[in-house]
Amino acid sequence: MTKAAEQQGSVYVPEPATIVDKKRMTEEETWYDLRLDSGEQLDHDPGQFVEVSVFGVGEAPISISSPPSKEDGFELCIRHVGNVTNAIKKLGMGDKVGIRGPFGTGFDPDAVVGKDILFVAGGLGLVPLRSLIWTVLERREDYERVIIFYGTRSPATILYEDELKQWENDPTVEYHGTVDMADDTWKGNVGVVTTLFSRVDLDPDNTVAFICGPDIMFRFVVQETEKVGIPDDMTFLSMERRMKCGIGKCGHCQEGSVYICREGPCFSYEQIKAL
């Protein structure tokens, strides 16, 4: 529970946070750096989300994109698609939003120590994975190979371009990017993200896959991971649903016997199959 909620005795009351920095990333997405006004840290796991309030407009669930190690505050990358996220777009540095969370179950980096780590991100799916990617890279020696596949619709919709370059130039990271549709500036791979699987040899016995992107992408990517032979309990995904209350009450995000906002949004593929 957030501090404000604790003080006020309601799990629905957000606590104030301040936008300390923002940067337009693409036509549709903006990056934000936020601090809780209480001075506390979020203390989140990679893959968890917060409910962001713009008072008078509403709340929206947003994945936390910074790693837990970030010292002050946390980062979000917000796609402006609805009422709340469009209202956030109009806010500037120093402005306030409300925060509840962190909520949900994230990815556990401790559980995959010693493994080859494969990240597969599609579009905005890079946002929750970024938190985990940095967490893994901070303790690089705990893992064997680190492979990142990132696909977007076009070069214009690529997120975190500077960091992708960093990963590309990092000798300990195997980074592969692709776009569905190229333009004149694009020199790299063209095609959906699954085409990248042919570029690397994966060890089915020691690889763990973390996948995040639109539902339709999941379905094709897990076909590839299954083809490689990565077990279902070594394949992890993050799911999108209508997470309204964040605490497993309002019912909107129910899928089978779980609430995506509580038991998810991160699941193993084995768990998802059982839903």
Partner: peptide, 9 residues
């Protein structure tokens, strides 16, 4: 009216 003033749908 308030929604339009707040810039929301």
């Amino acid at each position: 009216v308030t929604s339009l003033l707040l810039g929301k749908r």
